[in-house]
Amino acid sequence: MMLSEEMSDIAEENLQAHIETEEEEEEIKSLIRPLQIWITSASAPICYQLIPLLASGEVFGMTTEISIHLLDTHQFKEVLCGIVMEAEDMAFPLLYSISEHTEIDEAFIQADIIIVLDDVLLNHEVQSLENYIREVSEICQVYAPLIEKNAKSEVRVISSGKTFVNLKAMMIMTYGPSIKPANVIAVATPWEHAARAMLARKLNMNTAGVKDVIVWGNITGCNYIDLSHAKLYGYDWAIWGPANFPCPLLNVIYDSEWIHSAFLSAQSSLSSRVCHSVGMLPAHGVATVLRHWYHGSPPGEIISVGILTEGQFCVPEGIVFSMPVRFQNGNWEVVTELEINETTQEVLGRLAHELIQEKLIALKEIKEMHPYGADKITSKNYLHQEMETLPTGSL
């Protein structure tokens, strides 16, 4: 019933309306500023577990879109392409884009967040510890200038993985002097979470109720898991109170023999469990730190991260040392009001020694590690040597 000329006019109007609609959508998209997240060594299993956590909205909020950039060497290009396709197929509403990169010169362009996962495959029969430290230093010598050149001025750098997380953070700050030290941290939460889970199993309670377990020192080396400030929430014991009423953990675990034997023995294998994990535990640790960094820690709760020291707790300045912090308003602050006894202070001094040695080797100021005191202490036996001398209240 309609003339061809009328139909042509309507078709032309529809086409024009369609073009205008597309232009409006493109303009709206151009106004969107998603968070630019770069992940190094993105072929690692932790990255595969981390992407769904970042894209789900639980970390940055349900209104924040993100773009993820996966960086690795040419030999892993096919792996990266597979991760990109799978992430796209999952159709995360907040995943604005995801891409793979194998050209190092393109790294960290407009980055808001950089997650450094680079690990070295430790085999002491092939190489010495000192050679591995120098290898980590060389990686950071490449990354740091690129971060300064390509990333945003307020970029936040997170060092994670299974080896040398403190050292990676330290070297990025050293070789990238314009990067704000407060914006570079190392993740200790996998060790903290595993210790909390162990304690919850002992007490037959929910892990969420175990708070303020502190990881001191070299996160992936010699560290000290401190229970003296740990608290329990919602635990069924002699004293009843509201849901937010805490009780000191060491007032509940009367079995000091368990703390000095089973708990310490389990700690000696903790690093092995974390390092052999398929990626869920360290990925959850990174996501937890980012969530606290962007939205703040729960009221009164502390979390352990590796930060550049400024003399807190009498730890020497200028090393990345894991200690308790609180996140608030996009920043963090060290919980310096915690009291520590002389024995714990001695332990922190020994832990700091290892990190100082790593830094000096990385900077080629010394050639080999020098032990603290007469006997050489390794990460496997250090915990037992030190903890056996600590009173229960200092654990």
Results as ranks from 00 to 15, higher is better:
Met2Gly: 01
Asp9Glu: 11
Asp9Ile: 15
Ala11Ile: 14
Glu12Ile: 09
Ala17Gly: 10
Glu20Ala: 05
Glu20Arg: 05
Glu27Arg: 06
Leu35Asn: 08
Leu35Gln: 00
Ser43Glu: 14
Ile51Ala: 05
Leu54Ser: 12
Ser56His: 04
Glu58Arg: 15
Val59Gly: 04
Gly61Lys: 09
His69Phe: 11
His69Pro: 14
Leu70Lys: 03
Leu71Cys: 11
Asp72Thr: 13
Asp72Ala: 10
His74Glu: 15
His74Asp: 14
His74Cys: 04
Phe76Val: 12
Ile83Tyr: 02
Ala87Gly: 06
Ala87Thr: 05
Glu88His: 14
Glu88Thr: 13
Glu88Ser: 14
Met90Ser: 12
Ala91Glu: 15
Ala91Arg: 13
Tyr96His: 08
His101Tyr: 04
Thr102Asp: 04
Ile109Ser: 15
Gln110Asp: 10
Ile114Arg: 07
Ile114Pro: 02
Val116Ile: 03
Leu117Gly: 10
Leu121Trp: 06
Asn123Gln: 02
Gln127Pro: 00
Ser128Gly: 15
Asn131Asp: 15
Arg134Thr: 12
Glu135Pro: 03
Glu135Asp: 07
Ser137Leu: 03
Leu146Pro: 02
Ile147Thr: 01
Glu148Met: 04
Lys152Ala: 06
Glu154Pro: 09
Val157Arg: 03
Ser159Cys: 05
Leu167Thr: 00
Met170His: 02
Ile172Cys: 00
Met173Lys: 08
Thr174Trp: 00
Ile179Met: 02
Lys180Gly: 09
Pro181Arg: 00
Ala186His: 05
Ala186Trp: 01
Val187Cys: 04
Thr189Phe: 08
Thr189Asp: 02
His193Trp: 13
Ala195His: 00
Arg196Asn: 00
Leu199Ile: 08
Lys211Leu: 08
Trp216Asp: 04
Cys222Tyr: 12
Asn223Asp: 12
Leu227Asp: 03
His229Gln: 10
Ala230Thr: 12
Lys231Trp: 11
Tyr235Cys: 06
Trp240Phe: 14
Pro242Leu: 07
Ala243Glu: 07
Asn244Val: 14
Pro246Ile: 03
Asp255Ser: 06
Asp255Val: 09
Asp255Glu: 09
Asp255Arg: 02
Ile259Glu: 06
Ser269Thr: 14
Ser271Trp: 02
Val274His: 07
His276Met: 11
Pro282Val: 00
Ala283His: 03
Val286Thr: 05
Leu290Gly: 02
His292Asp: 09
Tyr294His: 07
Glu301Ile: 11
Ile307Lys: 07
Gly311Ser: 08
Gly311Gln: 01
Gln312Thr: 05
Phe313Ile: 13
Phe313Glu: 07
Phe313Cys: 10
Met323Tyr: 08
Gly330Leu: 14
Asn331Thr: 12
Thr343Arg: 13
Gln345Asn: 14
Val347Leu: 11
Gly349Lys: 08
Leu351Gln: 11
Ala352Lys: 10
Glu358Leu: 14
Ile366Ala: 01
Thr378Cys: 12
Ser379Cys: 15
Leu383Arg: 14
Thr392Phe: 12
Ser394His: 01
